[in-house]
Nucleic acid binder design. Structure first.
Lengths: 171, 171
DNA sequence: TTGACTTAGTTAGCTAGCTAACTATAATGG
DNA sequence: CCATTATAGTTAGCTAGCTAACTAAGTCAA
C-alpha cells in the first residue's frame, strides 16, 4: 500500500482558511479542515509505522506481502493475486518479491499445471520474521490507540465509512 | 505533503484479524482495524485529490507550494521556509521550485541584503492557476464531505487529535 | 582579520512506486 | 488445427520523494 501526499506540516489556521473562503466562496471550511487533518494524521501514522518496520529491516510494501501470504492456509499465493490484494501493479509486485526472495523470506516455485504462473511461498524464515515483527507492531498500535475508548473507535469507523462513500464524488 | 503507504485494497476481515490475534496475543483488534481503515480512507482521498489536481496540470507537491505562497500577504517566501511548512527537505523543495519556475508559476529573485537567500514570488500566472484550481478543489471536498453533519465533523477532529497524541508512543 | 562555524541553496545518486512494452504460455474459434 | 486473443510475469525507463555531500555567503571570536 502506498499513499502519496505532502506532510502538511503547516495546516491552515482558522483565519487563513477564512481568508481563502472569501476568495473562493465554494470553500466549506469545516470540510476542508477535517480532510486536511485526516490526511495529516494518517501521514504521521504511516511514517511512524514505517519507522517501526524499518527497525526490523522491513519496508511497508514487503511487509504487507508477508502478511498476505501468512493469511493463506498453505502460505502460498501468486504475484498477480498479491498485487491485486496489495493494490499495486504487477510490475511493482515483481520488485517487492525480488527483494523478499533475496532476503530468503519467500520462495518462487514454478507451477506445473500452468507454466505461466509462479507460486509464491512464505518460507520458514519469512514466518519467523513476521513472528518477530507483528507483536512489536501490534503493541505499538495498541499504545497509539489507547486514548480512544470502544465507542470512539466505532464512531471513527462509522465516520470513515461515510467519507469513503463520498470519495467517488471527488472524481 | 507526501504520505507513503500501501493501498491496502484487502483489509483483513474480522475472522482474519481474529486468527492473527490468536497467533499474536498483543493484537488489539479494534485498534488495528481502526488504524488500517484510517490509512485506507486517507490513501483513497489522497489519490482522488491528486487526480483532481492533475486535471489542472498540477502535482500535489507543487500545488501545495502555490498555496503556501498565496497565504503570504506579499505572495513571497523563501525555499527553506517553504520546505519547513510543506514538511519536505530543502533538496525536494529545490526540485518543486524548478518545476514551478519552468511553468512560470513562481519566480526566483535573489535577495539584496543576504545574497545566500532566494526570494520565491508567486507570479500573476501562479495566482491565476490557483484561482482556476481552488474552486474546483473546494467543490470536490464539499461534495465528498456532504454526508457528514457538523457534529460528526467535530467528532472526527476530536478523535484524530486523540490519535495524534498517541503517535509519539509509536516510535 | 583570519580561521572555524553556521546557514541557504543546489547537485548527485538512491528508493519504491508507476506505465508501457515485452516474452512465454494458454485458451478459443473459424 | 492454426491464427488470434488473453493471461502471467518481467524488464526498461519515468517520477518525486529522500540523504549526503557540496558551494557560496554570512557570523563570530581569538
Amino acid at each position: 500500500m502506498v499513499l502519496i501526499m505532502l506532510q502538511l506540516k503547516d495546516l491552515p489556521t482558522p483565519d487563513v482558511l477564512a481568508k481563502f473562503a472569501i476568495r473562493y466562496p465554494d470553500a466549506d471550511v469545516t470540510a476542508v479542515s477535517s480532510v486536511l487533518q485526516l490526511l495529516r494524521v494518517a501521514t504521521d501514522l504511516s511514517i511512524a509505522l514505517d519507522a517501526c518496520l524499518s527497525k526490523h529491516g522491513l519496508l511497508q510494501g514487503r511487509w504487507w506481502v508477508l502478511i498476505l501470504l501468512m493469511r493463506e492456509d498453505d502460505k502460498t499465493s501468486q504475484p498477480s493475486i498479491l498485487a491485486d490484494k496489495a493494490g499495486v501493479t504487477r510490475a511493482t509486485m515483481t520488485g517487492l518479491l525480488d527483494g523478499l526472495e533475496q532476503s530468503g523470506l519467500i520462495a518462487r516455485v514454478f507451477a506445473k499445471e500452468d507454466r505461466r504462473t509462479v507460486l509464491i511461498n512464505l518460507t520458514d524464515a519469512g514466518v519467523k520474521k513476521l513472528d518477530s515483527v507483528m507483536p512489536d507492531y501490534y503493541r505499538r498500535i495498541r499504545r497509539c490507540m489507547q486514548g480512544l475508548d470502544e465507542e470512539q473507535r466505532q464512531q471513527l469507523q462509522k465516520i470513515l465509512a461515510l467519507i469513503n462513500l463520498g470519495i467517488p464524488a471527488l472524481t
